[in-house]
Amino acid sequence: THFTSQQLQELEATFQRNHYPDMSTREEIAVWTNLTEARVRVWFKNRRAKWR
């Protein structure tokens, strides 16, 4: 999946605040970024792996 810079900005900003967002937070992010909750969940999983 290719993310727009706007989507990445929103995802990264949320990641800085919370590395493990809950389901409702992921659903909110999905609405803001026009992505599915599953895409958001996978992005956070991959981002945490990169962060370690």
Rank of each mutant, 00 (worst) to 15 (best):
T25D: 08
D22M: 05
P21F: 03
E10P: 01
Y20E: 02
W51M: 12
W51A: 09
L8V: 08
P21W: 05
T36D: 08
H19K: 14
S5H: 12
V42I: 14
F3C: 05
I29R: 01
T14L: 15
E12F: 04
Q9M: 13
E28K: 14
A30S: 05
F3P: 05
V42R: 14
T33Y: 09
R52A: 09
A13F: 10
K50Y: 08
K50T: 09
E27D: 06
E28T: 10
A30Q: 01
W51Q: 08
F44K: 00
Q9P: 01
T25E: 14
F44W: 03
E28M: 14
E10Y: 15
Q16P: 03
V42M: 13
R39A: 15
T25F: 07
N46Q: 13
S5M: 12
W32C: 14
T33S: 06
E37V: 06
F44H: 00
E28C: 14
R52E: 08
P21L: 03
R41Y: 07
T33K: 01
Y20F: 11
V42H: 11
T14E: 14
R48M: 05
N46W: 15
V42K: 14
N18H: 06
E12S: 01
E37W: 04
R48F: 04
A38N: 10
L11N: 01
E27R: 14
R47M: 05
N34Q: 10
L8D: 05
R39F: 12
N46K: 13
V42L: 14
R52G: 07
T14I: 15
R39W: 11
V40C: 00
N18G: 06
K50L: 13
N34M: 08
N18E: 06
E12H: 04
T14W: 15
I29S: 00
S24K: 15
E37A: 06
Y20W: 13
Q6F: 14
L35W: 06
M23G: 05
M23R: 15
W32N: 15
L35M: 09
E28N: 09
R26I: 14
Q7H: 04
K45L: 08
R26F: 07
E10C: 15
F15C: 03
V40P: 00
A38S: 11
T33I: 13
A49P: 02
E12Q: 02
V31N: 13
R48A: 04
L35D: 02
T36M: 03
R41G: 05
E37F: 03
V42Q: 14
A13W: 12
E37K: 03
Q16R: 11
V31I: 13
W32P: 02
A38M: 13
F44S: 00
R48P: 00
A38K: 12
F44T: 00
F44V: 00
N46M: 14
Y20L: 03
K45H: 10
R47A: 05
E28L: 14
S5F: 13
R52H: 10
Y20V: 04
T4D: 06
N18F: 06
T33W: 08
T25S: 08
W32R: 15
N18V: 07
H19W: 06
S5C: 15
A13H: 09
R17F: 09
V40T: 00
W32T: 15
Q16W: 10
V31A: 14
W32G: 11
F44E: 00
A13R: 13
K45D: 06
E27N: 12
F15H: 01
W32D: 09
E10Q: 15
W51I: 09
Q6S: 10
T14S: 15
A38P: 12
R48C: 02
A13C: 14
E28V: 09
H19A: 08
A30L: 02
S5Q: 13
Q9W: 11
Q16S: 08
R17M: 11
H19N: 05
E27V: 13
F15L: 02
E28Y: 09
P21A: 06
V42Y: 11
H19T: 04
K50Q: 13
H2A: 11
S24P: 11
F3R: 03
K50F: 08
D22N: 10
Q6A: 12
R47W: 04
L35A: 08
Q9D: 09
T1G: 13
H2G: 13
I29H: 00
M23P: 06
Y20I: 02
A49L: 09
R26T: 04
E37D: 03
L8S: 06
W43S: 02
E28P: 00
Q9I: 12
A13L: 10
V31F: 13
R26L: 10
T1L: 12
N18C: 14
R47F: 03
E27T: 12
Q7Y: 04
W43Q: 00
L11H: 01
R41K: 09
A38E: 13
V31L: 14
V31R: 15
L8G: 02
K50I: 13
R52N: 08
T4L: 05
R47N: 00
T33P: 02
Q16N: 08
W32L: 15
F44I: 01
R47T: 02
L8K: 06
T1M: 13
N34F: 06
A49E: 10
T33F: 13
F3A: 03
N34Y: 05
H2Q: 11
R17A: 09
R26V: 10
V40N: 01
H2M: 11
L35V: 07
T4I: 03
Q6W: 15
P21T: 02
I29N: 01
A30R: 01
F44G: 00
Q7S: 03
V42F: 11
R52L: 13
M23W: 10
A30C: 05
R17L: 11
V31K: 15
L11Q: 00
Q9F: 10
E10M: 15
